[in-house]
């Protein structure tokens, strides 16, 4: 659940006085888009992204002479000239949920992870969060999803779990999602079985409504 379990620990970093060319090469070679900028004591001072580099480069539609002059000028620029200083960072003790919510708010692709002294400990990217939630959803384990519509009151989940457990089926995960009707909830058990027909019959016999898969919805778009 904590960031330090899901972050990349061997971070590729760069110093503030390195050239842009070096930053670009590091990103290309390692297939990454974010380079935390650190001092020798690993204190985080900024972050430079592939977008920062592209914004600094001359437009490819300029006349060749101008491109050449610009490149000449850019070659003298240093990482500290184009980086985002003091970027939003997150602590190793923060949770994946914190990172998700923060990423939605700040709209960046990665957070440097720093300790209380401001030293870099790792980096967590949107890809790390995706991987974590693929695990949570059990998407790569063989199983099948069911969609059940329930009244929004205490005790419903127990009945579902009991009914499924009586069939001897194990759970990969259970998601609960909001329904457009506030008195209802959608429950999505991910079952580690191919034999869902029997479980479905059992749930129906226990009085649950199964939702048409084409009506399944895990996400509600923000209201405008």
């Amino acid at each position: 659940m904590f960031i330090n379990k899901s972050m990349t620990k061997n971070v590729i970093t760069i110093g503030p006085d390195a050239g842009i060319e070096e930053a670009r090469n590091l990103m290309e070679k390692n297939g990454i888009r974010h380079l935390p900028v650190v001092l020798e004591n690993f204190k985080l001072v900024g972050i430079v992204t592939d977008r920062d580099i592209r914004s600094a480069e001359p437009s490819c539609v300029l006349p060749e002479a101008e491109i050449k002059a610009e490149l000449e000028r850019i070659s003298r620029l240093k990482v500290k000239d184009i980086m985002t200083p003091d970027p939003v960072s997150i602590s190793p003790a923060n949770t994946l949920g914190d990172a998700l919510v923060l990423m939605k708010k700040i709209k960046v692709g990665a957070f440097p992870v720093v300790d209380q002294e401001g030293k870099l400990k790792g980096i967590i990217s949107i890809r790390d969060l995706m991987r974590a939630f693929i695990n949570v959803l059990g998407l790569e384990e063989p199983g099948a999803l069911l969609g059940i519509i329930v009244e929004n009151r205490v005790g419903q989940m127990k009945k579902i779990v009991d009914a499924i457990s009586e069939e001897g089926v194990s759970f990969g995960s259970i998601l609960v999602a909001k329904h457009s009707d506030e008195d209802k909830r959608l429950v999505f058990p991910y079952l580690l079985t191919s034999n869902v027909a029997r479980v479905k019959r059992k749930l129906k016999d226990s009085g649950f409504d199964l939702l048409d898969p084409m009506e399944w919805t895990l996400d509600q778009l923000p209201k405008r």
């Binding site: 059990g138 998407l139 790569e140 384990e141 063989p142 199983g143 099948a144 999803l145 079985t193 191919s194 869902v196 898969p213 399944w216």
Partner: peptide, 8 residues
């Protein structure tokens, strides 16, 4: 696979 076994 989002609706059926085995999910691949």
């Amino acid at each position: 696979p989002s609706f059926a076994y085995p999910g691949t």
